[in-house]
């Protein structure tokens, strides 16, 4: 089923890159969110979409039942999701302050360090 996910990843990347190349800072921030989603999915797919069985150990057993999903990419992505949220929160705060000072979200008009 990788090809379905691959199209999703490609679509998210394309949308993210396109938005990054806009003049409006609003769109750039949205593009950033889409890019981080795309990257997470990329890692997830690269780790292998083998199983829908979560890596959980049932009561009384020592190891998860055969055919569980790889826990390692999941741990990595979990970290990435949370850190991505921190980055977005900071970016949004920065954006808000910048917008208040400069009065525009057009990147071409933010070409001076004076406010």
């Amino acid at each position: 089923m990788e090809w379905i996910i691959s199209i999703v990843v490609g679509g998210l990347y394309a949308a993210g890159f396109y938005l990054l190349m806009r003049r409006s800072l609003v769109k750039v921030v949205i593009g950033l969110v889409l890019l981080s989603q795309a990257a997470n999915l990329l890692i997830f797919t690269a780790g292998g979409l083998r199983s829908s069985q979560a890596p959980l150990v049932p009561e009384g057993a020592k190891v998860p039942p055969e055919g569980f999903a790889d826990p390692l990419p999941q741990a990595l992505i979990l970290t990435a999701i949370v850190i991505g949220f921190g980055v977005i929160a900071f970016t949004l705060a920065l954006f808000q302050v910048a917008y208040k000072r400069v009065g525009t979200d057009d990147l071409d008009q933010m070409n001076s360090t004076d406010t």
Partner: peptide, 23 residues
Amino acid sequence: RDLLIAVAAGAVMSLLVLVAARV
């Protein structure tokens, strides 16, 4: 122009996913 670049980049990423999944 930006759309073409972005779509090309997205296509390359799709290809990357497919190659990576085989590894």
